[in-house]
Structure formats: structure tokens, C-alpha cells
């Protein structure tokens, strides 16, 4: 009995702490002098530390951009690696200020976990990877296969849905972390490895012989990936949303980390408003008016971040596809700074 009481007390203490942390995240971050960013435990292109412990990736860049907007320094971020399973509890309990770790925005997560979602920094979908020697061309041929997948993800549910809808049989083998999952697949425990398509390309690099595996053409789900924060702190939500939108708007307006200083003198009123030369948009979200200038100066626009981390300039070489700007046939679209 004592054990149960203790656990309830400890659990409650965690929840109590969360209650205190739910409002005014910005003030806490400023007092602490550092942003605590819930990140992936290691997914190439999205969030991964290198041998020196420097984090890089598309999701990492969003946290760096927020840090740049607040502190004028992209390095004031502490990255807290979280498994898929632990991420929401860590955010709810106030252990991190936001999650920026390829998290799918779903209705149940938005409405029943006490979380808030908004901008989508990567439009993804779930795919399958198999060994070339199986000579499979489509996911419809996978009946009877063993499938390795990660726990606590939408992947696990989409997988069950897809196989059920197509009346295919399969054997799920579920692991707690992505590393264990890909290792088991590499060891031959499964025929199929499944996760978001971007993840497939990233995880394939960890295999012994990446060239022996192919990604099947089917994309079986919608996976809008984006940052999440605690429900109820609208100011903090505005900062996260507009950090992402500033990066999109900058790309659209042709403002890059290299030309941002010249762009300050631009006559274009949209650029003037974005970079804080005109209006007081930064103060309205509790920051300084040069917030977007800082983001672009230190981190770059969305296009730069994409190319550097997952696009042509990276090992992943993922095409922009649906993640291109709306003006170029993609889905990335930001409300105007006005």
C-alpha cells in the first residue's frame, strides 16, 4: 500500500509542477537563460547530435530559431532527447518548453493530451522499407510479413489500419526506441521496417548495407509534423508559430542569412515589416522588434534550413516535394506579417 501512496504522491507532485509551469513559459525561459527543447533521440536530418555533441537538423533549427529570437543567440538551447513514448509526459510535466521532434499532429493529441499544435514544419507520410532481395514492388505484397516499428507512435496505429483495411496478415514487433527498431530490422528479425518516409531515408543510413534496401512507393498516411507546446500558454504558442512563419516568409521574400543585412535597407514594405524596420510586431509577441532579423541572421530561412539538413546539401537528399513553398506547388504557406 505504501508503494501505491508514494507513487500517487510522486505522480501528483509532477502534475502540480506542471500546473505551475503552464503559463508564462517565455518568462521562465528568459529567467533560466536557456530554452529546453524536447528533441529526437537521434534522427538524421531532423534532430541528432554529432560526435562533439552539437545538435543539428530541421527540428533542431526551429528551437535554435526560437532561441535566436529571444536571446539573439541560437546556442542557448538545451536539447532534451525524448523517446516517442516519453515525449508527451515530458512536455506535460514541464520538463521541456516545447517538443520539436517530428511529432504528428493528430486530433486526439491536440484535444486530450493538454497540448497545442500549430505550424507544420514538415509534411510527411508513413512508408515501408524492405530488403531488395525479397523482390517486392508494392506494400500489397506484404501479407504474412514481420514488421518492425516503434512504440508510442502514429506509425503503430497506421500500420494496423493499413493491414486491416487491405486484409493482409502481419506480425508486429514493437520496440521502445528507433535505434532498437532499426537494429532488429538489420539483424533480420523483420521483413519490413516502417516509419515516416523521411525517417526511412534517415534510418536507412544506419544499416550495415544501405543499398540492399528499398523504400516502397506506397505512402499510407498523412503525417503533419510540427512543434507542440502546452495548452493554455497562448503567448508562447504565438512565439513558436511566428518563428516558423518568419522562416517561411523570409524564404518567400528571398531573405537569406547571407543577404539579411542588405535586406534591412530594402524598400519592400513586407521585408521592412518582417525585419522590424517598420512596425512593432516583435513587441506584440513579447520579443524585440528585430526578432525575425535575429532568426534569419543566425539560422536562416526555411529553405536554407531544409537544404542544409534534409535536402540536396545533406546526406538524405530528400526533394522539397510537398514541403516546397505554396508559390512553388508545395504546402508551406505562412500568414503575412502585417
Amino acid at each position: 500500500m505504501k508503494k501505491v501512496l508514494m507513487s500517487v504522491a510522486v505522480g501528483a507532485a509532477v502534475v502540480m509542477a506542471a500546473g505551475a509551469a503552464s503559463a508564462q513559459t517565455l518568462n521562465q525561459v528568459k529567467t533560466r537563460g536557456e530554452l529546453q527543447c524536447g528533441s529526437n533521440t537521434g534522427l538524421a536530418g531532423f534532430g541528432q547530435p554529432d560526435a562533439q555533441g552539437n545538435w543539428s537538423g530541421l527540428d533542431v533549427d526551429l528551437c535554435r530559431a526560437i532561441s535566436a529570437a529571444i536571446f539573439n543567440d541560437p546556442k542557448k538551447v538545451k536539447f532534451v532527447p525524448l523517446s516517442s513514448k516519453d515525449r508527451f509526459t515530458a512536455l506535460q510535466s514541464g520538463e521541456v518548453d516545447l517538443l520539436s521532434r517530428n511529432t504528428t499532429w493528430t486530433m486526439s493529441r491536440d484535444t486530450s493530451l493538454g497540448l497545442e499544435f500549430g505550424p507544420v514544419n514538415y509534411y510527411d507520410g508513413q512508408g515501408f522499407m524492405v530488403r531488395k532481395k525479397l523482390k517486392i514492388a508494392s506494400a500489397m505484397e506484404l501479407s504474412g510479413a514481420s514488421v518492425c516499428s516503434q512504440q508510442g507512435t502514429t506509425t503503430e496505429l497506421n500500420l494496423a489500419d493499413y493491414f486491416r483495411a487491405n486484409k493482409l496478415k502481419y506480425e508486429p514487433v514493437i520496440f521502445a526506441t528507433s535505434d532498437e527498431t532499426i537494429k532488429a530490422y538489420d539483424a533480420g528479425r523483420c521483413d519490413v521496417f516502417t516509419t515516416d518516409a523521411s525517417g526511412l531515408y534517415a534510418e536507412r543510413l544506419k544499416l550495415t548495407n544501405p543499398d540492399d534496401h528499398i523504400v516502397l512507393p506506397e505512402i499510407i498516411s498523412k503525417e503533419p509534423l510540427g512543434p507542440a507546446w502546452r495548452h493554455g500558454d497562448n503567448q508562447w504558442g504565438d512565439i513558436i508559430k511566428w518563428t516558423h512563419y518568419a522562416m517561411i516568409n523570409a524564404e518567400e521574400l528571398g531573405v537569406t542569412s547571407k543577404n539579411v543585412d542588405e535586406m534591412l535597407k530594402s524598400a519592400n514594405p513586407e521585408i521592412k515589416r518582417l525585419l522590424g524596420a517598420e512596425g512593432k510586431f516583435g513587441e506584440a509577441i513579447g520579443l524585440t522588434n528585430d526578432w525575425a532579423y535575429r532568426i534569419i541572421k543566425h539560422v536562416g530561412n526555411y529553405g536554407e534550413s531544409f537544404e542544409r539538413n534534409v535536402g540536396a546539401g545533406s546526406r538524405l537528399k530528400i526533394a522539397r516535394g510537398v514541403n516546397a513553398l505554396w508559390s512553388k506547388g508545395g504546402l508551406q504557406y505562412a500568414p503575412p506579417v502585417r
Binding site: 500517487v8 505522480g11 501528483a12 502534475v15 502540480m16 506542471a18 500546473g19 503552464s22 506535460q92 484535444t111 486530450s112 493530451l113 493538454g114 503503430e156 496505429l157 500500420l159 494496423a160 489500419d161 493491414f163 502481419y170 508486429p172 502546452r230 495548452h231 493554455g232
Partner: peptide
């Protein structure tokens, strides 16, 4: 406090989930 905070943060609580469809294998 736990119940109160869960409600404030709009985190679902209770044991109603027990009979919901799991949806995973």
C-alpha cells in the same frame, strides 16, 4: 491537485478509455 491540474490543462482523465478500441496490434 492532480485532478484539478489535469482538468485545467484539458488532459483527459478517468478510466473511460478501458473499453475504447485499441487500434494497434
Amino acid at each position: 491537485n492532480a485532478v484539478d491540474n489535469l482538468q485545467k490543462q484539458k488532459i483527459a482523465s478517468g478510466f473511460g478509455f478501458w473499453n475504447n478500441t485499441a487500434g494497434f496490434d
